[in-house]
Structures are given as structure tokens and as C-alpha cells.
Amino acid sequence: MTTSHVLLGLLSRGQQHGYDLKKAHDAAFPSARPIAAGQVYAALARAEGRGWVRAVAVEREGGPDRTVYEVTPEGREELARWTSTPEAPERLVAHPLATRATVAMLAVGPDAARDLLDRQRVAVVDRMRELTAHKTRPGLSVGELLATDHAIAHLDADVRWLEAAALRVVDLTEELR
């Protein structure tokens, strides 16, 4: 994901200035880290340099000048390309928890690794419960609901991995010796 593409999407709904885009971003993606004003203006400058947006007006409302931007036809084409391109699946070769469990097996023994995996499973299930309750809150944006569903699905996969890993600890310990 690039900030420029997210801003293109927000601008596709109509002309806006940077401050409005920051507010729109933070409202549309409340689960994400709030975007800094500097990020907005830097991304707008990059998008303008690529011909994706253009400044259409400068407004002054009792404060500093505010440049109003709109999406160009080239920007709409780029947005259509970006929104239709699937995200590449993550290629995790090593995972921090797998590394920690392996070190626990090597340094302390299989019981320590199983205990770590069991405690991690409890933490993951607790987080899944929190997110499931969060999904039922009124007023969630579509983006926040989609992000929450995505997180729950990943946590569910983590639970399955944790259960399988706990069953394999003895076998893995023998492989490492």
C-alpha cells in the first residue's frame, strides 16, 4: 500500500485539500496509525509529480493557504490499476515466534517450548475475542470492518499453527539435536 494511492482513492470522491485528506484518512481507517500531515503533503507532491493529481485552487480561511487538489484522468487510471492488482502474499521464511519456540526447545527443552506456544495461543484467542466484540460496535466504517475481519482470519490461522506446533515440539526437538 502506498500513501499516494490511498489519497488518490480519497480524492476520487471530490476535490479536497491536505487537511481534509488527513481527516478523511483517519476517519476511513481508524484502526490504522493516524497519518501525519507531512505524509499527506509529501504523498500529494509525489502524486502531482507523476501527473496523478493537480492543484485546482488555493483557499485561505483565516489561516495558512490551503491548496485544493483533484484527481487527473491519469490518476484515475492509476487508481483503477492499483485497486485491481492483488497484493502479493507475504513470504515469511522465518517468524519471530517460531524462532523463539526453537530457541526455547534448544536452550530449555520441549516443555518450555510447549508452554510458550500454549501461552501464545491464549493471548491470540483473547485478541480474537476482543476483535470479534469490536466488529459488533455500531458505526464501524467498511474499511475498519474489513481490516478487523482480516486480522481475525490471520489470528485464526495463528491458532491453528500454534496447535500444530505444540504437537510437533517433540519431533522438532529430535530434529535439532
Rank of each mutant, 00 (worst) to 15 (best):
T2S: 09
T2Y: 01
S4H: 05
H5G: 14
V6T: 03
V6D: 03
V6H: 06
G9P: 08
S12H: 12
R13A: 11
R13G: 09
G14Q: 03
G14K: 07
Q15D: 14
G18C: 03
G18D: 00
Y19T: 04
D20V: 02
A24D: 09
A24H: 07
H25T: 14
D26L: 02
A27K: 08
A28K: 02
F29E: 04
F29Y: 11
A32K: 09
R33Y: 04
P34R: 01
A36Q: 11
A36W: 10
A37K: 07
Q39T: 04
A42V: 01
A43S: 01
A45Y: 06
A47S: 09
E48Q: 13
G49N: 05
G49L: 08
G51W: 06
W52K: 01
W52Y: 04
R54E: 00
A55Q: 09
R60N: 01
G62R: 04
P64L: 12
Y69W: 11
Y69E: 11
E70Q: 14
E70W: 13
E70G: 12
V71S: 02
T72A: 01
T72M: 01
P73N: 02
G75M: 15
G75D: 10
G75N: 12
E77A: 12
E78N: 02
E78G: 02
L79S: 12
A80C: 07
A80D: 09
R81D: 01
R81G: 01
S84R: 09
T85K: 14
R91Y: 04
L92H: 03
A94D: 11
A94C: 10
H95N: 15
L97R: 12
T99R: 15
R100D: 03
A101N: 02
T102Q: 12
V103H: 09
A104E: 10
A104F: 01
A104S: 06
M105F: 06
L106M: 07
V108G: 13
P110E: 13
A112N: 08
A112H: 05
A113R: 02
A113H: 02
L116S: 05
L116N: 03
L117Q: 06
L117K: 00
L117F: 09
D118T: 10
D118I: 04
D118L: 11
V122A: 11
V124G: 05
V124S: 11
V125D: 00
D126V: 10
R127M: 15
R129W: 04
R129E: 07
L131G: 04
T132V: 07
T132L: 03
A133N: 02
A133G: 05
A133H: 12
A133M: 05
A133Q: 03
A133Y: 04
K135Y: 10
G139F: 03
L140N: 14
V142C: 14
E144A: 13
L146E: 13
A147L: 07
T148D: 15
D149N: 14
H150W: 11
A151C: 07
A153G: 03
A153F: 08
H154I: 08
H154T: 11
H154Q: 08
D158W: 15
R160N: 07
L162T: 02
L162K: 04
A164R: 12
A166K: 04
L167V: 13
R168I: 13
R168Y: 14
R168M: 14
V170E: 15
D171R: 05
D171Q: 08
L172Q: 09
L172F: 10
E174C: 00
L176F: 08
R177K: 14
